[in-house]
Each structure stands twice: as C-alpha cells, then as structure tokens.
C-alpha cells in the first residue's frame, strides 16, 4: 500500500530523532490518505498558496494545494522574529511578501546549529521544509535554510511557483480537456456512427425512404399498367428508367429491394421485370 517513493522521503524528513514515534504515526495516516495521489517532491510555493490550501481530513491529513497533496515545500523570503531561546530548536517567521508562516528548525547536530547561525533577521533565504499542521496552525518543519547570495533566485522562485502552478492546472485542465475531447471523440464517433449507420436508416425512413417509397409506388404503378402487364416478357429496366426518369443506378437498387420484397419478379432475364399480381 505504501510505495517506497511515498514513504521514504517522508520518513527521511521526519524532523529528527526526537519525535520519531509521533511523526511516523502522522505520516502513516497522511500517506494512507494520500495513497491515491501522486507523490510530489519539493514543491515551490508562496505562503499565500499554503494559507489557502485545504486540508480535507483533520490535522494528520495532508495539505492540498492546487489539487496536489504536499509534504515538502520550497520557499524564498525574508527571515524575521528569529527565536533561539530554546536549545533544541530555532523558530522564526518567513515573510515572502505574500504572507508570513511560522517555521521551526530542530537543532540536533552541530551542522543544524551552524546553518541556523548564518540565518539572520532581515536576510533573504531559500528554505526547504515539511509542511505540517500543529494545533490548528500550519507551520514548516524546516530541514534546510540557506541565505540567498544571487538575488535572481528570488525572481526565479516566484516564476517557478507560477510555473509549477500553471503546469499542474494545465495537466489537470489537460486531463479535463482530454476527457472532454475524449468524450467529444466518443460523441463524435457516435454521431459519425449515427450519420453512417443511423442516418441512412433515418433517411431511408424519411427522405430516401419516402423517395424510395415514392419510387417503389411509381415503379409498381408503372408495372401495374395494363399495357405492361399484358407484355409477357415483362418490362426492361431501361424502359422504366426512361419512362419514369429515374437514374438507372438508383433504379437498380429500388428494383432489387422490390424484388426482395416479392412485389416484382424478373422474367426472361435479370433486366426484365413484371409486377406480382396478388
């Protein structure tokens, strides 16, 4: 049920060894609720997207942005309110211009402490973290914070957010469009089927049908004439075509169906017909 790709990245970023039992529980539930969705890697988002994200099934369920369940997100913004009063964690707020979000970085190794030392209030950082709801508030359990040195990365991040968003909406839209075109195709194939199969039936009932009925009657009426019934060898197709001004190819079809219906019969050869007298 848990594919490796879903489970391993989650447990890899489970926030360190302190809370191992708690997060794993959370992940079990979240990944079990997320099993139907594709696992996403590190997704670039804005704080506003996170704020507007929905959470379907309580605190332990995943957070859904743009129809995609997110676990790990990447943000760029300004650090503020850095709080180092606790030994085991560093708290701060990230302001990316679209909103602010509380962040927490567990300090387990000296590496974590060193990385957080370089993160100062007012500095632009690239931050990767695990998105989580805790006591009703969304927060980020950060596993990487790096000061930005090339500020094109700021522009890039927001463009990447737009790109990821539009790519996803496109693929969702694409699916919908695909569905629509598929159903269109199904519909059109149905309609073409209708035009190829049903229409002839319908037309045989309506246009050609009436026409054929008229033609049937015209031909029968012609053959029923005493002048024709008297002729032993029957009437040649050419004559009927000439007299009734029916194209010969059309006439052949009608004659065949009349013959099939037992209303006329061929006489001396397959071109001469007589009316069946009942």
């Amino acid at each position: 049920m848990f594919s490796n790709s879903q489970f391993e990245p989650n447990s890899a970023f489970s926030g360190g060894g302190f809370m191992s039992s708690q997060p794993s529980q959370a992940y079990e539930t979240s990944s079990s609720t997320a099993k139907s969705r594709d696992f996403q890697g590190l997704v670039p988002v804005t704080v506003k997207q996170i704020a507007e994200a929905s959470q379907s099934g309580g605190e332990k369920s995943g957070i859904v942005i743009n129809g995609i369940e997110l676990t790990n997100v990447s943000l760029v913004g300004l650090v503020c309110d850095k709080d180092v009063s606790k030994v085991t964690e560093v708290r701060f707020t990230l302001d990316d211009g679209t909103g602010r979000i509380d962040c927490k970085r567990w300090v387990n190794e000296s590496f974590d402490a060193r990385e957080m030392e370089s993160v100062l209030d007012g500095a632009y950082v690239r931050l990767n973290g695990h998105l989580k709801t805790f006591q009703g508030k969304k927060q980020l359990l950060v596993f990487s914070v790096r000061p930005i040195t090339d500020f094109n990365e700021v522009t890039f991040h927001y463009i990447e957010c737009i790109h990821f968003y539009s790519k996803n909406s496109e693929s969702q839209l694409g699916q919908q469009v695909g569905d629509v075109t598929q159903s269109h195709m199904v519909n059109s194939s149905v309609t073409t089927n209708q035009t190829t199969t049903l229409n002839p039936v319908m037309s045989s009932q309506n246009n050609d049908g009436n026409g054929r009925k008229n033609l049937d009657d015209m031909i029968l009426d012609y053959l029923k004439q005493p002048a024709c019934t008297e002729r032993q060898q029957g009437i040649h197709l050419d004559e009927i075509a000439q007299q009734l001004k029916i194209p010969k190819n059309k006439l052949e079809g009608v004659i065949q169906s009349l013959e099939g219906d037992g209303l006329i019969y061929s006489t001396i050869d397959e071109y001469h017909f007589k009316h069946v007298e009942l």
């Binding site: 211009g97 090339d150 500020f151 094109n152 927001y158 968003y165």
Partner: peptide
C-alpha cells in the same frame, strides 16, 4: 540585490504577479 540582477526577468514577474497569477501572490 547586488550588482548583477536581471531587471527584465523581474519586470516580467511583476506583470505576471499582477495579472494572470495575481491570486498566488496577493
């Protein structure tokens, strides 16, 4: 923001962030 920053890119981002994708930002 340093000495080498792509102003053109930023300008395009401004347009996107105030246009089609405004809802991602404000």
């Amino acid at each position: 923001f340093g000495i080498s920053f792509d102003a053109l890119n930023y300008n395009e981002l401004c347009k996107l962030a105030n246009g089609e994708f405004k809802h991602l930002f404000i």
